[in-house]
Simulated scan of single mutants.
Amino acid sequence: MTYELSEDQRQIQELVRRVAREKVAARAAQIDRDAAYPHDMFELLKGLGMFTLPFPEEYGGTGSLLSACIAVEEFGRVCYNTAYLLVVQWVPFGAILAGGTAEQKQRWLPGLAQGELRGALALTESQSGSDVSGIKTHARKDGDGYVLNGSKIWCSNSPLADFILVAAKTLDEAGQPLGINLFIVEKGSPGLTIGKEEDKMGARGVPSCPLFFDSVRLPESARLGTEGGAGFKVAMEALNSSRPIIAARAIGIAQGAIDHSIEFVANRTAFGQKISDFQGVRWMLADMAMKTEAARQLVYRTATMADAGVSGKTLAPMAAMAKCHASDVAMQVATDAVQLFGAAGISAEYPINRYFRDAKVVQIIEGTNQIQRNIIADSLLGRVARS
């Protein structure tokens, strides 16, 4: 399967690239330095209609995951955190779109698409990061609803979210397990406590916090999908199809690191010549560009597969390859970029420091690269893929 950017996608690329350079780039360093949520960038994305991008036309979108990847790459090229604002909005949107009832879609999706509402997803627990099946948070049936107890960590966007999708083991009234479901927990629900923001190495503009659930009462309408885990599987498929978007963030980091490196070496001299004239430096830049372009092709191809309706066991290993390879490349390229900057590369006064830290984050979030390799290997060996 091949891809070619449509005229609409090229226009999106040109628009986002221009906006990123003219309105976003100047804010990137301050967002990272202050670790403060960029409300102005959220309003910018909202005004541009970016939140709707990958979703059906009925929500104002293009129905194209590739278009979403292009936007995330271009924003991530200058500011990881601005690109991150799109991702944290799209993941809960995608999960509800895939597994929600008609009533849930009508209540939450228009607001998410227009930027009037914000969401978050809570999967990770202290004893089970990559192992989603090992979560201990549980929702026990109680009359016509559920009682939710447990805790989560690293829930990005939670302090600003109007609702949080919470993964929990569903129990019957006798405490017997029924499976895993996602539950919609609204902001301000009695018994929900949002803990202190983490002081993160990268991705500092979007807060990540622990969550605590102390007998949070939920109506049956808060459950996403059918009881017993089927709804969770649908949501996991939505997350699986979003992995190319995560990979696109890595491509943005890599390309941005290359951009800064070229500018730096082209304007420095050593031993009577430009640094960019040294063969060793030129070859480093060439390798950085080759790796990034190869990763970009993989990400775009995977997004094109998703747009063509490929899903499940066929899409899973490709999505894992895209996320894993792209984020590994971002780390390699950012590392080489720091080397090219020399002593300046380890100074917080230069932007490449930020790209290096954000690259490491992408190797870990949304399923570590070790987990992605497990998914790929399971596919090769005919085993059941892991999320």
Score class of each variant (00 low, 15 high):
1 M>S: 14
11 Q>I: 09
12 I>C: 07
15 L>Y: 06
16 V>H: 04
16 V>I: 15
17 R>E: 14
20 A>P: 08
22 E>W: 08
24 V>Q: 04
24 V>K: 02
26 A>L: 13
27 R>V: 13
28 A>Y: 00
31 I>V: 15
35 A>I: 12
36 A>G: 06
36 A>C: 12
37 Y>T: 10
40 D>E: 15
41 M>N: 11
41 M>G: 08
52 T>C: 09
55 F>D: 01
56 P>N: 03
56 P>M: 08
57 E>W: 09
57 E>T: 14
59 Y>W: 11
61 G>Y: 13
61 G>N: 03
62 T>R: 02
62 T>G: 00
76 G>N: 14
76 G>D: 00
81 N>D: 15
81 N>T: 06
82 T>A: 12
83 A>Q: 04
83 A>C: 07
85 L>K: 01
88 V>R: 00
92 P>W: 03
95 A>L: 14
96 I>H: 04
100 G>F: 02
103 E>S: 13
103 E>G: 03
108 W>Y: 15
108 W>V: 02
110 P>Y: 04
114 Q>T: 15
122 A>R: 02
122 A>L: 08
122 A>T: 09
125 E>D: 08
128 S>V: 05
131 D>A: 15
133 S>G: 10
134 G>A: 14
135 I>G: 02
142 D>C: 11
144 D>L: 07
145 G>E: 05
150 G>V: 08
150 G>H: 06
165 L>Y: 05
169 K>P: 00
170 T>A: 13
171 L>G: 02
172 D>P: 08
172 D>Y: 12
174 A>N: 13
175 G>H: 12
180 I>V: 14
182 L>W: 11
183 F>W: 07
183 F>A: 01
184 I>C: 01
185 V>T: 07
186 E>H: 08
188 G>H: 09
188 G>R: 02
188 G>S: 10
190 P>S: 11
190 P>C: 13
190 P>Q: 07
198 E>S: 08
201 M>L: 15
211 L>S: 01
211 L>G: 00
212 F>I: 13
213 F>R: 07
216 V>L: 05
217 R>C: 08
218 L>G: 00
223 R>W: 00
226 T>I: 10
227 E>F: 01
227 E>N: 01
227 E>Y: 05
228 G>Y: 09
228 G>K: 03
232 F>V: 11
232 F>E: 00
235 A>S: 13
237 E>T: 13
238 A>H: 03
248 A>K: 05
249 R>W: 06
255 Q>G: 12
256 G>C: 04
257 A>V: 07
264 F>C: 04
264 F>P: 00
266 A>I: 01
269 T>Q: 13
269 T>L: 04
270 A>G: 05
270 A>T: 12
274 K>M: 12
281 V>Y: 03
286 A>M: 12
288 M>S: 05
297 Q>M: 10
300 Y>E: 01
304 T>K: 14
305 M>W: 11
309 G>V: 06
310 V>W: 03
313 K>G: 06
315 L>M: 03
316 A>N: 03
323 K>T: 04
326 A>R: 09
335 T>D: 12
338 V>L: 14
340 L>P: 04
342 G>P: 02
353 N>R: 13
357 R>V: 11
358 D>V: 10
359 A>S: 15
361 V>F: 07
361 V>W: 00
362 V>A: 10
363 Q>Y: 05
367 G>I: 04
371 I>R: 15
372 Q>G: 08
375 I>F: 05
380 L>K: 11
380 L>N: 08
386 R>A: 05
387 S>C: 11
